[in-house]
Each structure stands twice: as structure tokens, then as C-alpha cells.
Design a protein around this nucleic acid. Structure first.
Length: 422
DNA sequence: TCTGGGGTCCTAGGACCC
DNA sequence: TCTGGGGTCCTAGGACCC
């Protein structure tokens, strides 16, 4: 058996932990640039018409009328709270897979003598006590079934946040209560295809012939199908694998037309992603740079160019990558458009230790390596962007994100600690 | 005026190799 | 009338996830 532990409206809950005054009140968290809603707590969801990804400007009046508290996203805080949850969960199973920022799978094999429902409750209570965050616990024999159990744990109030699928009868009953759209791994397109042939619940889906599933939904669909029927296809994996690609692409705080400002944003993103690469001791073989105008605008001319290049030598050197990115940018940039976003993506990642260099290669000379190391050390010690490439520029960052309602970074900055009045 | 960001896996088809 | 067989690697696009 395994458990899926999932934090309830994670980002919104994180904000509430530090704001006792917001208990029981509606809270939402906004995306970058305060563009749309990406998390809403229970109270906010109860207010009609607050679907996720709704642009905030369209429902500003509604939010105001219901006195919904809005927060810009504060990923530093959420990342650290996530670690705290994981630390608590490790006490319940040594074999844990941190699946996402707010979800973990726990391998419970070897605990068959335990009352798993009681164990689930214990997990829930410990996490709440130690972090202040509410979670739901789903327990079953496969990953997909524990996802189903987790949904039911939260959806049906009598379950009080914990649900166990431990018999064939319970499995069938759970699947009958689960809409096909709510099954993990079955997205919008497949839901439509399935509804077209009269399949509406997870249970219906498991009754389809395997060859239909295989043909229309590839092996991915087949895995879901088998897992829903109780056949284990996916293991709980302990070790976190290194990433295969690192990308960043954020919308500018305002539309930009000039190349030099876009170049500075691009150089900034490159320094971010190459630092991530160095942290996991990887180098990139490919670099992609793309530009976007505003997709949503009927008024603006649209242009979404992109170029991917294979680098002469796999590298994680910020300066080399900025130079290459600028070359691409100058190729794809055309004046006369109002650009909304520049993005970079490093892929073809491989370990630093296996890079095949050539005679003319400078980047892996000790000098360059030491320079990168020094930069990373200083920025870690004295704060982000203490030293940086001059390509980033030193003027005001016109492209910077808008974050008007960001909460303090309570847990990672001395200056922003929670104040308690006695 | 204002609409997010960062990933994974799978498949088909083309290029290329012997 | 007749034109091989068996591979690998790469890329773009689709589908999905949080």
C-alpha cells in the first residue's frame, strides 16, 4: 500500500499560516505579474465564479465585494514550507517521493499490520501540528488509486481528509464516485474523447477493452487503466532524478519594444537557469530562445519566433550562454512589435563530468570554472545578484514582474520574520 | 490597461548509418 | 517487369501534470 499526501489549497494555506486574522476568510494567490488566480482556499472557492486561472482584472469587483484577500505569489515561502511538510512526512515512511511542491507519495509496504485509516489520521494531525498546514491523505495499492482516494478524502466531509481503498468493493465504489475528468493522467482531450463514446466515470473507463485504450490513449492510457484496476505500474521512487531541461520565461511587467531592454531580461534569465545547471552539476547541449507578443490581444500584431541551437560544446557557463542567447535574439527580433515575454530553455542536459571538450575549448579551463564558482558562492552568501554579468545592465529593470501584494518571506529572511506582539 | 510558469513522457517521421 | 533490411538518433508536436 501507499499514501498520497496532498496539501489543501497549498499556496493559500501557506499565507494563512502567518496571518491568524485570515482564519475562515477567503484568500487567493495570484500568478506572476498578479495576472490570474492560481490558488484559492475553501472559503474563496465557495464564492461563485472564482474559477482558477481567471484573470484578476475581470473579477476585481467580485473579489472586493466578498472581501477576498489577495496575495502575489511568494515562491520562496512556499518552497520552504514544502520542505517542512516533507520533513514531517519522513517520520511516517523512510521511502518517500516528493512528487510536487504540495504532494508526496509514501510507501507504506510493511505496515500491513497497522490500521491504515488511523495511520492516515495521524499523518494529517502531525503535519497540521508541526507546520500549520492542512492535508488530505489517500491510501491505496497503486499511485492512481491513491490519487482517487485522496480526492474522495477531501470531497466527502465525513471522510475527514483521510480515505483508504483496501478492498475490491471499496475500489469499485470509489471509481463509481469518480468522474473521468478527475482521474490523474486523463486530461481535457481524452475526457472529451471518452465522453463521446459514453464514458463518464472512472469505473466505466476500467470496463473498456484494453486494445481501445491502447490505440486511442497510447501506453500512458494503458498504465492508467491498469493502475485503476489495481495493477501496480508505477513505483514510488525514492531518489530525485536530475532535471532534463531547465527553462524560464516570464511575462514582462509591461510591453516592450526595444531590443536592448529585452536583451537585459534575457541575460537575467540565462544567469538564473545556468546557475540551476551548475547546482546540479549539469551542462546543456541545446539553447532555445523565444519571443512572444501578447496572445490575448486582438489589437496587437502577433509574432512568436523561436530558435534552438546546438551548442558547440555543452556548457553551464553564464557568459558563454548569454553570448549565444544574444546571437539568437538578434536573429529573431523584429522591430515594430510589442513584446510580452522572452524565454530561454536549456536542454540536452548531461553531467559536467562527461563533457567531451576539444582543443579550442576555454570554458572548462580552471579559470572560467573558478569564476563561476566564485560568482555562485558570493551570490549565495550576500544575496542574489550581488555580482552579475554586465549584460544584465544596471538601470532600472523595466521588464521586471509586478508583485504588489507579496507577503513577507517569513521563514528565509531575518528582516521579514513574523512579529508577535505581547 | 490588466490574461502564469515550469516540467515530463510518448509518438511519428526524417535523416542517417551499415 | 524490376528497386533490401535493420538499426539509431533527433526533432516537433501532442498530451498530460502541478
Amino acid at each position: 500500500m501507499m499514501a498520497l499526501v496532498d496539501c489543501n489549497s497549498f499556496y493559500a494555506s501557506c499565507e494563512q499560516v502567518f496571518r491568524a486574522d485570515l482564519q475562515g476568510k477567503p484568500v487567493v494567490v495570484l500568478s506572476n505579474n498578479d495576472g490570474c488566480i492560481i490558488a484559492a482556499n475553501k472559503e474563496a472557492k465557495q464564492i461563485a465564479d472564482i474559477p482558477m486561472f481567471q484573470p484578476v482584472f475581470k473579477i476585481k469587483d467580485l473579489l472586493k465585494a466578498h472581501q477576498v484577500t489577495m496575495f502575489s505569489s511568494n515562491y520562496t515561502l512556499y518552497g520552504e514550507m514544502s520542505q517542512r511538510v516533507i520533513n514531517v512526512l519522513r517520520n511516517f515512511s523512510p521511502h518517500l517521493e516528493a512528487y510536487s511542491i504540495d504532494e508526496s507519495f509514501l510507501d507504506l509496504s510493511g505496515l500491513s499490520h497497522k490500521d491504515l485509516s488511523a495511520y492516515g489520521k495521524e499523518i494529517k494531525e502531525k503535519v497540521l501540528k508541526h507546520t500549520g498546514l492542512p492535508v488530505g491523505v489517500g491510501i491505496a495499492s497503486t499511485k492512481v488509486l491513491s490519487k482517487v482516494a485522496n480526492k474522495l478524502a477531501k470531497k466527502i466531509p465525513e471522510n475527514e481528509g483521510v480515505f483508504v481503498i483496501d478492498s475490491e468493493a471499496k475500489r469499485i465504489e470509489a471509481l463509481q464516485k469518480t468522474l473521468i475528468a478527475d482521474v490523474w493522467g486523463i486530461g481535457r482531450k481524452h475526457v472529451k474523447r471518452l465522453q463521446n463514446i459514453g464514458i463518464y466515470t472512472a469505473n466505466h473507463f476500467t470496463e473498456l477493452p484494453l486494445n481501445w485504450v491502447r490505440k486511442n490513449m497510447t501506453v500512458v492510457g494503458e498504465r492508467m487503466w491498469r493502475e485503476l484496476r489495481g495493477e501496480k505500474m508505477m513505483e514510488v521512487t525514492n531518489h530525485s532524478q536530475p532535471r532534463k531541461a531547465v527553462a524560464t520565461a516570464k511575462s514582462f511587467g509591461k510591453k516592450l519594444e526595444k531590443l536592448d531592454i529585452i536583451e537585459e531580461a534575457c541575460a537575467y534569465y540565462i544567469s538564473e537557469v545556468s546557475e540551476i545547471l551548475r547546482k546540479q552539476n549539469s551542462t546543456a547541449s541545446y539553447l532555445q530562445v523565444f519571443l512572444n507578443t501578447n496572445y490575448h490581444s486582438d489589437f496587437d500584431k502577433q509574432y512568436h519566433p523561436s530558435i534552438t541551437v546546438k551548442l558547440e560544446m555543452p556548457t553551464n557557463n553564464t557568459f558563454v550562454l548569454i553570448k549565444e542567447a544574444n546571437k539568437i535574439l538578434r536573429k529573431i527580433y523584429k522591430p515594430g512589435f510589442r513584446y510580452k515575454k522572452v524565454g530561454v530553455c536549456l536542454s540536452g542536459l548531461r553531467s559536467e563530468n562527461y563533457v567531451q571538450t576539444n582543443l579550442f575549448c576555454q570554458e572548462f579551463s580552471g579559470k572560467q570554472q573558478n569564476l563561476m564558482q566564485m560568482m555562485d558562492d558570493m551570490n549565495a552568501k550576500y544575496g542574489k545578484s550581488t555580482i552579475f554579468s554586465s549584460s544584465l545592465g544596471i538601470r532600472k529593470k523595466e521588464w521586471e514582474l509586478i508583485k504588489e501584494e507579496r507577503s513577507p518571506r517569513y521563514t528565509t529572511q531575518w528582516k521579514e520574520l513574523l512579529k508577535v506582539q505581547g
